[in-house]
Design a protein around this nucleic acid. Structure first.
Lengths: 218, 218
DNA sequence: TCCATGTTTTCTGGATACAGTATACATCAA
DNA sequence: TTGATGTATACTGTATCCAGAAAACATGGA
């Protein structure tokens, strides 16, 4: 039987809605000051409220939206304390990923990491969005190579929080470029083979990012 | 105005359903070999399918359920590799929490931790369930005292995975008691004030748990 | 008896209908 | 004009309905 199964789990409308709303949040057509109305969205997509609701609930659970008043959603706006905690969560995940990588210290893996960094940092344009994507791609590569799907899941969970991109928008681009440069040093730390060293290097790299963020946020 | 606001966010049926299904999973009345049928559940709860659907979707997203066939849910069964990865994720979260605690090294906090351990380990009965709860309570206390809501959220996310309890059921209770005893040592490690030491102690404690689990799982 | 085909049943995703509540708005008295 | 009260509107949660697809079952020919 040369055919591969095409029984995809019957794609749900809610998934598409989810993606579209996400996009709308990213490009700023939905802002955090207007409440999100199920019926309005349903009308725009020309579908019923049911799948829209489903997508919204999902986003609430992921911390992208927050429920206000009697049940309507808004984009969840993080205050500085929460932003800072978010970086903390990143330290936990990515720091441990670095630890695992160091403990394995596999040459081929490290090589792939270097390659990923080179690829990602070859920015096609200098927008903040491009920087954001590049930075995320690099960091995601580390977690991915650590080979633990839970870790990767948690990573995505954190990075998808609605404001994570808009937050970056406030950082001056000069600083961004500088911060991009540090990634190779992370691989170096991994290559020491010492878990704690790698973890600490990663953590302090992330904290640098946090400081940039905090400065910009004031 | 001596009245306190009673505007609670209008509690949703789906939440109750969620809790009930969760309970049913824990006490084994829903097992992983039977598919979960929305209409059946709705009938049992004597409500419509809508809130049931909502609860199920939520559980799917949390990784408690998995979608099979054309869209029906089952309890997600983790294989040994995934179980092991789950412990890895715990190392990341809880290890970093320990690091934070050590860096702060606040006497009052440490005292509260010791108290929490004493409280939790005073098992009223010797069932595996009781052990599981006690162990979770202790570990949760560490993360909670680290004072980072994201970390706590991720912690809950991991520990709520459907099978996390049923997994434990296979460990011999003798081993469990032994493993409970190690918790005070974690506070000791925190009191060294050295982040790496604390993190590593926590990680190796969790890995001990993992090894127990893996042995039992074979 | 066993396989292939057609038919019924089951069950999901999505649309629509309905009820309840908070908000917005209008109306009226001081 | 302003504040209190009644009314309309907006929007949510829940119930019900409908169409489509998989799965189970039955039926008939070799």
């Amino acid at each position: 039987m040369p055919f591969k199964s095409l029984s995809q789990p019957r794609q749900r409308l809610a998934d598409q809605v989810y993606a579209q709303i996400m996009q709308a949040i990213r490009d700023g057509s939905i802002t955090s000051d207007q409440p999100i109305v199920q019926e309005k969205l349903a009308d725009q997509f020309e579908i019923s409220r049911t799948p829209v609701r489903e997508a919204l609930f999902r986003m609430e659970q992921e911390g992208i939206l927050t429920v206000t008043g009697r049940g309507s959603f808004r984009i969840r706006q993080l205050d500085m304390k929460e932003v800072s905690e978010m970086y903390g969560a990143r330290c936990a995940i990515e720091g441990y990923a670095a630890r695992l990588l160091a403990e394995t210290n596999d040459a081929a893996t490290n090589q792939r990491l270097r390659q990923a960094i080179t690829d990602a940092e070859d920015l096609s344009d200098n927008t903040v969005e491009a920087y954001f994507q590049a930075n995320m791609a690099v960091h995601r590569a580390f977690v991915k190579e650590a080979n633990n799907r839970f870790l990767l899941e948690l990573f995505d969970n954190i990075w998808n929080r609605g404001s994570s991109f808009t937050m970056f928008a406030s950082i001056k681009s000069g600083e961004l470029v500088k911060s991009l440069g540090d990634h190779m040093a992370l691989v170096d730390a991994i290559e020491t083979g010492d878990g704690s060293t790698a973890a600490e290097t990663m953590i302090s790299h992330i904290k640098d990012g946090r400081d940039l963020q905090v400065q910009a946020g004031r």
